[in-house]
Design a protein around this nucleic acid. Sequence first.
DNA 1: ACTTAGCACTCTGGGCATAGGAGTGCTAAT
DNA 2: ATTAGCACTCCTATGCCCAGAGTGCTAAGT
Lengths: 348, 348
Amino acid sequence: MPRVLSSEVSVVDGRKQKVLATLIDDYIATAEPVGSRTLARKYAFGVSPATIRNEMADLEELGYLEHPHTSAGRIPSDKGYRYYVDRLMRPWVLDAEVIEQIRATYRVRVRELQWFIHQTARLVADMTAYPTVVLAPPLREARLWDLRVVAIEPETVVLVLRTDTGIIENRTLALPEGLEAKDVAAMAEDFTVQFRGTPLAQLEGRLIDGLSHQVGSAWRFWEEMLRWLAEAPDEEERVTLGGALNILNYPEFRDVSKVRRVLTFLETEQAVDTLLTLRPEQGIHALIGSETDREDIRDCSVVMASYQLGNKVVGKLMVLGPKRMEYGRVYAILEAVSEELSRVLNWA
Amino acid sequence: MPRVLSSEVSVVDGRKQKVLATLIDDYIATAEPVGSRTLARKYAFGVSPATIRNEMADLEELGYLEHPHTSAGRIPSDKGYRYYVDRLMRPWVLDAEVIEQIRATYRVRVRELQWFIHQTARLVADMTAYPTVVLAPPLREARLWDLRVVAIEPETVVLVLRTDTGIIENRTLALPEGLEAKDVAAMAEDFTVQFRGTPLAQLEGRLIDGLSHQVGSAWRFWEEMLRWLAEAPDEEERVTLGGALNILNYPEFRDVSKVRRVLTFLETEQAVDTLLTLRPEQGIHALIGSETDREDIRDCSVVMASYQLGNKVVGKLMVLGPKRMEYGRVYAILEAVSEELSRVLNWA
DNA sequence: ACTTAGCACTCTGGGCATAGGAGTGCTAAT
DNA sequence: ATTAGCACTCCTATGCCCAGAGTGCTAAGT
C-alpha cells in the first residue's frame, strides 16, 4: 500500500534527498546494490535501517530507485541519476595541481588543430579515467581564407590551407605529369583571390565555373585537391578517441560482448558524430542511460561539453562511462578543459 | 613406454606430418582441442582413430602437441606451430581482387608518410581480421635535407621538413614575440645550407655551435623547433594501431583481463617498438607464443614484415593474433602489402 | 611389424539440489 | 513517526552426480 506522497515531481523531503544522494554516492563508489543496513551503518544517519527502508521504498515508488530482485539492495534508476545530476550532486572543486596540468598541456607553440584535439582527448581520458571522444570543427563549414603552395621537389608540393576561423591544414601531394609547382602556385593565388570567403563545402561546385578554362591535367589535379579540401578532413579525422581501454576497468564491462558494443560505438565515427551534433547547446550536459537514445550504449552515460572558436561553438568533447560514473568530477574536468581549449584555440 | 622414434629434429614420417598439419588446420579453424576420432572422421585418412591416436601420442612425445588434460583432444604446442609455419603450411594465393584492393589503397596523390602508415594499418587489419601495428621509420636517423618556412599570418609559420629519404613532415607553429616570419625564413635557409646531411638526432647538439650568435627569442624558438625535429615525431607517432577490436572476435579472448593485457601492450608504443626493432631482418617472420619473449602476449603470435625506403629497411608492420592464427593467409597479405608499400613509398 | 577393435579409465562440464546470506516488507510496539 | 522483530524471497556458492569425449593400453588381426 503506497503512502500518499506529496509530489511526483520532486523529492520534497530533505531526508529522502539525503538518502538518495548517499545511496547514489555509495553505488557509484562500489558498483554494488545498496541495502538499508549498509546505508544506515556506513553513513551516520540518525535513524535505523527500518526507517531508511521506508524511505527507500518511497523512492522506488517515485521511480528514483530500482530493485534488481527482491532480496538485493537498491540501485539508482535513470530518473534517479538524473535527479542526482540536476539537484543533489555536490559541486566538485579541482585541485590547483589539476588546473595547472590542464594549462600546461596547452602551453605550447604548436598551432595545429589536430594536435590540440589529440592532446585534449588524451588529457581528459587520463584525468577522468573514462574513454573520451573529441569532435573537431566541421571544416566544411569554414570559409577559405588562404591557399598556399610550397614546392618541395620538382613534382611534390605542400598545400597549406587557412580558413577564416584560423584553422590551418596542410597536405603533401604529388603533381601530375606535366604540371609544375610554379603553375600550381600561380593557380592557388588566383584561386584564393577568386574564392576567399567561400565555404569549403561549396568549393567543389564552384570549381566548374571558376576553373573550367584550365587544361586537362591541371583540371584533374584541382578536382582531386578540392575533394580533399571539402571532404577528407571531415570524414576521416573529425573524431578522436582517447583512453578507450579505460572502459575495461569498470566491473560492469566484465563481459566482452558489452565491451565490444561500446568500443565499436566509440570507434564508429558516425555514431559519435550524430550523437554530438544532436545537441548543439553550450555548457556541460549529461545523457544518462536510455537518454542517449542509442541501443549500443544503453547502459552507459555520457557527459559532453563544447568548445568555441571565435565565440562560436564548433566542436565537442564527450566522456563515456558506466551510468554510475562520477558525474561531479567529470563535470568539473570538462568545464575546465573546454574553457581552456576554447581560450587557447582562439590563440589568445 | 615410448617407442623409439627415428628423429627428434624432424617429423620424418609423411603420415605424421599429415596428421600434424591436419590437426593444426582443424584447431585453427575451430579453436577446440582435436581428438583422434574427429580427425579420422572429418578428414579422409585411410586409417582408424586408434592409429591416429598412436601418431598423436608420438607427436606429443616429440613435443609438437599438448594435452590440456587427459581426456581432451590435442592442441599444437609452440613447437608444433613453429614446425607448421616452417614446413607444413600450404602457401596461400591471394585473389586478384584482393591484390587490386591493396593497389587501389595506395593509388593516390598524397605523399605523407603518416597517411600511408595509417592506411596500411587499417588495410591490413581489415584484410587479416587481426589487430595490426605499423611502425614508422625512425625520423631521428634520417638526415636533414631541406627546411622551409612558410609565413601564414604575421606570427604563424608552417615549417616543412624534408629528409634525405624523402620523408616530408610539417608543423604549424606560433612565433615568439619579436620574431618575424621573414627572419625565421632566412634562418631556415642558413640552417639548411649549414646542416644539410646531418642526422636529425644530432641537430640539437649542433645548434649550440651553429646558432649561438642568435639573439634571445630566436634562440629559444630554434631550440623548441629542434626539439620537435629531433624528438616529437618519434616519440608520439611512430606506432600506428589498426583494428584493435578485431581481437574481441576470437574466443580465446573472452576474458576481459586477457583483452586488457593484449590491447595495453599494443597501445604501449615502447613495447611494440622494441619487439619490432629488435629484429631487423627482412622478409616475413612469425613469433609464436613464448618466442615473443613478452609476458603480456605470451599466448599470442605475431607475424611481422618490413618495408623499405631507398632499398633500406626503415619500418615494420606486425599482425597480432591468437597462436592459432591463420599464418598462411597473414603471410600472403603481409607479403603483398609490404611490397606494395615499399614500392609506393619510393614514389616509383 | 603395423593396424585396429575393445575396454577401462580420466577428466570436464552441465544439471540439480541444498544451505547460507542479504535484504526486504509487514506488523506491532514505542 | 520511528523502530524492532520476523517471516519470506531470491540469489549465489557449493557439492554431487552423471554423461560425454577422449585417451592409453592390450590383445587380436593382417
